[in-house]
């Protein structure tokens, strides 16, 4: 099932699937990790869940369903599933207590550094790296039509212009602070600006990139959002002519 997606992208790792703030209580979203479809949802109490995106009854994608309090309801026959993917209610038989094995496979999920992380294998207890600091915010999710290994390699040479700074005398440092998480520091004089890129292997030729960047003001957020949009374009078109707009331009590194 996972032919070409590997070389570092193992199922036993945590992968970011989206920004925490983008998933409000009572909402769900689809996500794909290493070809596996997930439904990621937040219950009314604020807890995030990540499950196999398939109802055990007739196989409907759970992403068509809806959140009902602390359960996720399937859109086909209204079966309600609670913590751990356990079936709680079967509306066709209102008095019935569903058997123990009526359960959707649940994946490990956690929230860290403004992102939701899931593992479809046996990852550790929680995402383990130092948070990027209070000043970083969720900027945007990108989907890049390229292989995860390629996107990861390109991310390790991505550069940016800190908000409000000129272009001169910038020194960049790229570090992989956790598997699939790349931190880019740009130093000029005594100041450091940081961007963090969390790579999500979607399929063999599709990769998610979740961008955290500075964002005190609207202008600053727009500055980094525009950078992220360019990053995506140049990742998909790495042979495009060099331009000073190219976040992957060799000249700048």
């Amino acid at each position: 099932m996972r032919p070409n997606v590997n070389s570092g992208f193992e199922s036993d790792q945590w992968y970011a699937v989206g920004g925490s703030a983008a998933l409000a209580a009572g909402r769900l979203m689809p996500a794909t990790v290493l070809e596996s479809e997930l439904v990621v949802w937040r219950d009314s109490g604020g807890t995030v869940h990540a499950w196999h995106n398939r109802c055990i009854h007739r196989g409907l994608r759970m992403t068509l369903g809806f959140v009902d309090g602390d359960t996720l309801a399937c859109r086909y026959h209204g079966w309600r599933y609670g913590a751990g993917g356990k079936c709680k209610v079967i509306p066709a038989h209102p008095g019935m207590i569903p058997p123990d094995d009526f359960q959707i496979p649940a994946y490990a999920v956690c929230e860290h550094a403004g992102l939701i992380w899931a593992s479809i294998g046996a990852a550790g207890d929680s995402v383990d790296f130092d948070g990027p600091g209070e000043h970083l915010r969720f900027c945007r999710d990108l989907v890049v039509r390229r292989a995860p290994e390629r996107v990861s390699a390109l991310a390790k040479r991505a550069i940016f212009r800190p908000y409000g700074d000129g272009e001169d005398d910038l020194i960049y440092e790229h570090r992989e602070i956790a598997p699939s998480v790349i931190r880019i520091d740009a130093r000029s004089g005594g100041d450091t600006a940081t961007i963090m890129l969390a790579i999500q292997p979607i399929t063999a030729d599709r990769t998610g990139v979740h961008v955290l960047a500075g964002g005190e003001t609207t202008d600053e957020r727009l500055h980094y959002a525009a950078w992220a949009r360019r990053l995506r374009w140049f990742m998909e078109n790495p042979d495009a002519a060099n331009s000073s707009w190219n976040p992957l331009s060799i000249d700048h590194s």
Binding site: E37, N53, I56, H57, R58, L60, R61, A92, H93
Partner: peptide, 19 residues
């Protein structure tokens, strides 16, 4: 949006109830 698209004929492949 049913997965898989083909109908599983083995009763163990999907969970069924009296209805």
């Amino acid at each position: 949006n049913q997965l898989p698209a083909r109908l599983p004929l083995n009763p163990r492949d999907e969970c069924a109830i009296t209805a």
